[in-house]
Design a binder for these strands. Sequence first.
DNA 1: GACAAAGTAGACCGGATGGTCTAACCTGTC
DNA 2: GACAGGTTAGACCATCCGGTCTACTTTGTC
Lengths: 213, 213
Amino acid sequence: MRSRSRKLDEEKRSSLMDAAIEEIAANGIEGASYNRIIERSGLSKGVVYYYFENKESLYKTVLEEVERQFIAAVGTLRIPDDKDAFWDVCDMHYTKALKFAASNLRIVDVARSFIEPACSPSMDKGPVFESLQRAERWMKYVLRKGQELGALRQDVDFELLRNVVQAVGYTMDSWLFDKLRSEPDAVDIERFVSFALDMFKRILSPKGLGESC
Amino acid sequence: MRSRSRKLDEEKRSSLMDAAIEEIAANGIEGASYNRIIERSGLSKGVVYYYFENKESLYKTVLEEVERQFIAAVGTLRIPDDKDAFWDVCDMHYTKALKFAASNLRIVDVARSFIEPACSPSMDKGPVFESLQRAERWMKYVLRKGQELGALRQDVDFELLRNVVQAVGYTMDSWLFDKLRSEPDAVDIERFVSFALDMFKRILSPKGLGESC
DNA sequence: GACAAAGTAGACCGGATGGTCTAACCTGTC
DNA sequence: GACAGGTTAGACCATCCGGTCTACTTTGTC
């Protein structure tokens, strides 16, 4: 890991990070060009390849940076041992996350562009693997806990359920972020969260809750 | 439209189509290479560019072919004027579609690779636009009809709902197709459809149905 | 058989990609 | 001031991309 053994001064680091974030946010992780990032950063190719082994190595650093910022702002979530509190905790955490996201739209773009391909089956996770895997593990943990508490249904293949939840979350968030960009003043995050949670409850609630009617 | 004015014999056409379908199914529409398709088809570059103006023009033809095959096998769906029959019709149609898909997995790959990018906001639809737009219009029509019949909720932004439905459908289908590939004998399409429809009902049912409990 | 048009092969092109390499330049040490 | 090692610039490279172009062969017509 060349990037750890050789330390580059903060100025270069941040101009590279900014350039990468800008480029990835604009073109997605698949469409981003390392050449353009380097150009954008104002550094020379020699320097960049001196500190980072290759493109993937830089991407990994970028994603770790994004992860770091996100966790610093939103914190980690501990699922309570109380079934009734489950959704409340989710509500709080989701709200916190969205508020961070709303004022860091560029970072959101980057993070989501890393996740997006994972949404569909094909993905050569590779370098970015660890951060993505942490996120996945976290999601699984929340779902499992919810199931143990009896708050979430258990009658469906776990992976299927997880994928659906992820896709729905991703999609609803997309809608919100679009709106935040086009008419930011019309957005009511609290209201969105309560809608989103209603959607999650519909999807995840144990069978029979609503069917007994 | 060069491809219509000049007609290429069936043999060449089908070898090109096969090559394109193979390539797109393997690499997705974004990752597919025109050069590789041409190579794969056994035709020369001269021939292919003689009949098709460019890559997009071929892709358009491929998607139209896929659309044609799908419609021929599955037919079009007419929403009944009866609220109670709404979900039954959906059930039948969905089952039919999945049964066709199950025995045409390569074509499914192609179709889905066209749709996939549309799932996320970014998309330069371009050539493929028309077929994709038809599919979208059809989806909107079904949802609108369902709303008019009172079978589907109307308390949410229409586009948001449509996107969620699309994402959920896409995701559940992914799961099914994965399973069809890995353990085809363990798959029960009827059971899957009833699960999927339950999911759609959860998401789409008008508010209050389950909440009055 | 002559001639034109339709069809075919594949070398070639410009531009992009990620990545390498060398020559020079600093900067600290003796 | 010489030397060494860390650092830097950017020319260069192979490879891929979609697309063009020219020279050739086939085919149909008179």
